[in-house]
Design a protein around this nucleic acid. Structure first.
Ligand code: FES
Ligand code: FES
Lengths: 156, 156
DNA sequence: TAGATACCGTACCAATTTAGTTCTGTATAT
DNA sequence: ATATACAGAACTAAATTGGTACGGTATCTA
């Protein structure tokens, strides 16, 4: 399936949850709030603070908080932290990973699609996830092959 | 990694290859052309014809051909055939697959993102993959959260 | 300063998925 | 008739995923 792993999804849930409650929160609280098992929550928070998206505070009264403001943290970063580089296909991300690279008919275009996907997810932030988003009508295709548009803040 | 499986990528390669050579092609020829092992090619072609994207002809002089014109076959269909439904997260595609659905803070937005992703891949066709694509500049974000634009036929 | 709290790091495990193979059967062209 | 080539299912090994366990360290509080 062309989808995020469950753990990555959980990571996004946790990040959003932290964003919505700016005060310091520990793993146990987040586990309770999210309904996820504590060891799993703990593992995810560790990974997220390891790459600098969260700041951890040890000891009694410790916990985690965002390292930046929600609209400065992209979904792309979260995904990258929890399941590695974003891309359409492996070949288009990890050069040299594929034997048929030299002769492959779609390699170049896969790269373009990867960049588009990455760009979209870099533009999407925790700040957006915190509020209801809406889907803008997809433009009719002309020579525009593909277009994704998401609008946040549903006055539309 | 947020990526297609290798086999799906191979499937896209094969479909593109078939699109570029309209005459009937058998599994062996396609294997040779793509540099992929015959059993793998065979398995992929079976799956693709099983969902009606390819038409198969048995017996001597048999082979496969596209069931529709290249620009009538979307990349979304190919992906769906080879690795199941497209979506951002599992929760946003398979209702009831997640225990935390009732309380999940991102579920609704995940659904929106899934629809956007699906829409983009439905708009992208084999016809587009056959020629060099280009990436249009991403619009600066205003209240447009995310935008993917791919332009094909690189006069731009 | 003792003790409780809570993160850190790593290693581990079971279950699933992925990638790839094998083999028997059936339809078709020559 | 026969060789060709797809159909379909079963099977395997390796990699990944989801989830757990545990000894160690920093920090707050009493
Ligand atoms: S399939 Fe690997 S480069 Fe195209
Ligand atoms: S994580 Fe499953 S519904 Fe949000």
């Amino acid at each position: 399936m062309f989808r995020l792993n469950k753990l990555t999804d959980y990571g996004i849930v946790l990040m959003t949850s932290i964003a919505q409650h700016p005060e310091l929160q520990n793993a146990r609280d987040l586990s309770a709030a999210s309904q996820l098992p504590l060891p799993t929550v703990s593992k995810l928070l560790k990974a997220l603070s390891h790459v600098g998206l969260l700041v951890s505070h040890r000891g009694s009264k410790g916990g985690y908080s965002l390292s930046r403001r929600p609209n400065q943290i992209s979904v792309a970063e979260i995904i990258d932290a929890l399941e590695g580089p974003i891309g359409f296909t492996e070949c288009s991300v990890a050069a040299g990973s594929c034997d048929l690279e030299p002769s492959c008919v779609v390699r170049r275009n896969s790269k373009v699609i990867s960049l588009a996907l990455l760009g979209a997810l870099e533009n999407l932030t925790l700040g957006d996830l915190m509020q209801p988003m809406e889907l803008a009508g997809l433009k009719p295709r002309s020579n525009i092959v593909s277009s994704i548009n998401l609008i946040s803040g549903g006055v539309q």
